[in-house]
């Protein structure tokens, strides 16, 4: 094996060290931007920092890391976020 263990294990900061956790999802949040009032609650409540804003101030989901927990859909005051089943 070319990989050698160090004397004692250490880890360095890494983005999503368990990989693209979007694979865990079976429901995905879909934002209907027409209903969105840009309040930012989805961004605030997202436990995975998977909500980002575009230059217009609209939220978008980073599906690479969104685990599909549905908290954003639950918090959205205008019902702009729907959880949609994902097929294989």
């Amino acid at each position: 094996m070319s990989f050698k263990v160090p004397l004692t294990p250490i880890s360095r900061p890494a983005k999503a060290s368990v990989g693209k956790t979007g694979l865990w999802r079976f429901l995905k949040p879909v934002i209907e931007l027409k209903k969105c009032k840009k309040c930012g609650l989805c961004w605030m409540y997202c436990p995975d920092i998977a909500v980002t804003f575009d230059e217009m101030g609209f939220p978008h989901i980073n599906y690479d890391f969104c685990k599909g927990c549905g908290i954003c859909a639950n918090e959205c005051p205008t019902g702009a976020i729907k959880m949609v089943r994902e097929g294989l």
Partner: peptide, 15 residues
């Protein structure tokens, strides 16, 4: 040192 705690090169130990 087997490893060093250094704010300029952060690592964590005890994984």
């Amino acid at each position: 040192a087997a490893f060093l705690l250094d704010v300029k090169d952060p690592v964590s130990h005890g994984n």
